[in-house]
Amino acid sequence: MDAINWHSFFFLFFALLACGFSLAVVMTSNIVHMAFYLTLALGATSGLFFLAGADFVGAMQLLIYVGGTLVLLIFGVMLTAKGPFISMKTSAGDLVLGAGVGGALLVLLLAAATQVDAWRVSEPSPPVAQVTASRLGMALLGARVDKLDEKDPVQARGMSGYLLPFEIVSVHLLVVLIGSAYLARPKKRMVGGPVDTA
């Protein structure tokens, strides 16, 4: 009997969790349960990131996505989860349509995913762990330390790093911050009158 490949074992574990809870998000109609399943699905995904050697991305997924975004989402769910909005049933027609389109899409994607031979297996013994956090940081500042030796001009493309996207994202975040504060600002309403959207 072959030795258990622990990487595969944990991959299987997290993959089942992620897929199972993703499907649970689709299946359930209770919005609070949906948020809960989504949390677990995204948490399991971060496990997959750790397995793939992307420590920093995994930790960020937990910190920003699960710890920040989803808490916000649940906050929103709790603000609006009242009576009829907790479970809104989807009409059967929509469900059939969604399942049909989704199934077709899934078949297409799965076919694409398993088409390339080189993708099916990896090296039996993966290389030693790499620390990626500071490399990522350097890349964001514009220095690609992993491509310094690249001779192939095609592969060496992107040497400039990600300084520009990084700046764009920073400005974007600022805009979003202001924008969402503007959207959620206190508004004025006439007592007993129509909503004043000024």
Partner: peptide, 10 residues
């Protein structure tokens, strides 16, 4: 007659 309101909470 104009009151401020934030997120609508019941």
């Amino acid at each position: 007659r104009i009151i401020e309101f934030d997120v609508r909470t019941d």
